[in-house]
């Protein structure tokens, strides 16, 4: 079988409760190489919890997450152990947080933020690291002259672009994004989405994207998962779920958006 015919990430029967709240209720999802999967749903439906469970940051009460690594080996995300998980997060994975301050090191320069990820995968030559960091700043439309500035001196949109550069510089195979455009102006969002769209298709990375923004999901995602009360209520081809929604909740979600 061709490797691309198998999912890179595969979750089965994930359940997770916080006291009486069932944040995840028997959730199963697959993600294939190079595919963008959008996870949408109302606030509190379990999207972020799902993403964290997929990335091994939160242990489910039940269920399993399998990741097929670059060498073709199947790994159980929740039993591989902290060091192995941390190595994956550093090398083959990336995570873009809603609040850039959670994904960046605020006390380190822009160039340092990008360079640090390169060093984590073994880059040692200072000049090369700096040059690559400058190239990535340019790629995310930040003037490389700002390479020595700290992220605190950047606007919200710039910070988010810096976080994307920091995440993608090592060319991960799988990236988790939780509301990457949340809290930004609409015009800034459009620019960021376009940037993500271009980079994701150029680099061919698999992305699990949590978003409130139906238009963003339509623009970026090959497939869509709709969550409600910790469950997946509908999933499928992005444009079909949005144009021919079956579940009452999906119909409500789609009808409340203007011409997505």
């Amino acid at each position: 079988m061709m490797p691309d015919d198998e999912p890179i990430l595969s979750a089965r029967g994930l359940s997770l409760s916080f006291g009486a709240v069932r944040a995840l209720d028997e959730v199963s999802v697959d993600l294939w190489p190079g595919e963008v999967l959008a996870i949408v749903g109302e606030s509190g439906s379990g999207k972020s919890t799902l993403l964290r469970a997929l990335a091994g940051e939160m242990r489910p009460d039940a269920g399993r997450v399998a990741y097929r690594d670059a060498s073709g080996q199947d790994l159980d995300v929740h039993s591989m152990g902290e060091p192995a998980l941390r190595r994956l997060a550093r090398t083959e994975w990336g995570f873009v947080r809603q609040d850039a301050r959670d994904g960046l090191r605020m006390g380190v320069s822009a160039g340092g933020n990008v360079g640090e990820r390169l060093m984590a995968v073994g880059a040692r030559h200072y000049g090369d690291i700096r040059a690559e960091a400058a190239r990535w700043l340019e790629r995310v439309e930040i003037n490389p002259d700002r390479i020595d500035d700290r992220p605190g001196q950047f606007s919200g949109g710039m910070r988010q672009r810096l976080q994307i550069a920091r995440t993608l510089v090592t060319r991960p195979r799988l990236v988790f994004m939780d509301e990457p455009t949340g809290g930004l102006d609409v015009s800034v969002q459009a620019r960021l989405l376009d940037l993500i769209r271009g980079l994701v298709s150029d680099l061919g990375i698999a992305v699990a994207l949590v978003t409130h923004d139906i238009a963003a999901a339509r623009l970026l995602a090959h497939r869509l998962v709709v969550m409600r009360h910790g469950r997946v209520v509908e999933e499928g081809l992005t444009d079909r779920v949005l144009d021919d929604p079956r579940h009452p909740y999906t119909q409500l979600l789609v009808s409340s958006v203007l011409a997505a």
Partner: peptide, 9 residues
């Protein structure tokens, strides 16, 4: 037409 395109199921 949309069925033929896969846009509707």
């Amino acid at each position: 037409m949309r069925l033929l395109q896969g846009n509707y199921g």
